[in-house]
């Protein structure tokens, strides 16, 4: 990583911490995917990676390139905005699909529908 030699110490340490935090949260979320017991518990696990996890990695990337190129590099905000908008949508769609499938099979683990459909 010769390009990073010119990075000041404070920036390097901050970027390192943010990277480790983000990757760690992604890993914990993925471990949750393995350890939690049923689908509805597991659906909570990836939110760790999609909120703070990718957020801190984006922040690290922004800080790194801004300091390195001595001009504001902000396009990572695009991924952040996109993630904020899409994560709830995908998770809600998945939760609804799972509820629908479980109800159709008459599973006792999910509450009955109040709307009459499904």
């Amino acid at each position: 990583m010769t390009h990073a030699e010119s990075l000041p110490a404070w920036a390097a340490i901050l970027v390192s911490l943010l990277l480790l935090l983000g990757a760690g949260l992604g890993l914990v979320g993925a471990i949750g995917l393995l350890r939690l017991r049923n689908f509805y518990e597991r659906i909570h696990a990836p939110t760790l990676g999609t909120t703070l996890g990718i957020g801190s990695i984006l922040l690290a990337s922004m800080l790194f390139f801004t300091v390195l190129q001595s001009r504001p590099v902000l396009h990572e905000v695009l991924i952040a905005v996109f993630m904020v908008l899409t994560t709830p949508v995908t998770l809600m769609l998945l939760a609804r699909a799972a509820l629908y499938r479980d109800r159709r099979e008459g599973s006792a683990e999910v509450p009955r529908s109040t709307t009459g459909e499904g």
Partner: peptide, 10 residues
């Protein structure tokens, strides 16, 4: 030194 820290954490 700081470059070392960064490359290790990456």
């Amino acid at each position: 030194m700081t470059a070392m820290i960064l490359s290790w954490s990456v």
